[in-house]
Simulated scan of single mutants.
Amino acid sequence: MRMVAKIGQVTFDCRDGYTLSRFWTQVTGYTEVPDDPNLPEHSQHFIGPDGKHPGLLFINVPDAKTVKNRLHLDLVPDTTRDEEVERLLALGATVYEDHRKEDGTGWVTMLDPEGNEFCVERSEAERGRH
């Protein structure tokens, strides 16, 4: 019998988990658990696809982020990469490093409102994978 472990969630230590959960809800379309909504006074804030696992968990911690993340999310948008970058900028993300190339390949490394890195890749359509 083969034994494996499933990923239940990706956890972010953060200063304001409620605010980050709201940001990432807009980014991913994930939702809270219907019977356990996230409130500003909570110390943990979970969002997932239809409120289920695997998802993202934001835990309030007292210390600020000081170094580059060792783990980050790579987003593949439904729209184009460039349209997604513009949408995320409007939500409060910032561009950290722009790795787009003249031939249309590449990605953009962005920061969420607390400075956590994530990347926006090309969409499946842009990669020719319909």
Rank of each mutant, 00 (worst) to 15 (best):
M1N: 11
A5T: 09
A5Q: 12
V10P: 03
T11F: 03
F12Q: 08
D16S: 07
D16V: 03
Y18M: 05
F23M: 12
F23G: 03
T25A: 05
T25R: 10
Q26K: 08
V27Q: 02
T28F: 04
G29V: 06
T31M: 03
D35T: 07
D36G: 01
N38P: 07
N38R: 13
P40V: 13
E41S: 13
E41I: 13
Q44C: 13
I47N: 04
G48N: 02
G48A: 05
D50A: 06
G51W: 03
G55R: 08
L57Q: 07
I59C: 03
N60K: 09
V61N: 00
D63V: 13
A64H: 08
K65F: 12
K65S: 08
N69G: 04
L71S: 09
H72S: 11
L73K: 06
D74M: 08
D74F: 07
L75K: 01
L75M: 09
T79E: 11
T79W: 02
T80D: 06
L88P: 02
G92P: 10
Y96L: 15
D98E: 13
R100W: 11
R100E: 10
K101P: 00
E102F: 02
D103A: 05
D103I: 03
G104D: 10
G106S: 11
T109Y: 01
L111N: 15
P113C: 15
P113Q: 14
P113I: 15
E114T: 14
F118W: 04
C119T: 10
V120I: 11
R122I: 13
A125S: 08
A125Q: 11
G128S: 05
G128H: 03
R129E: 12
H130T: 14
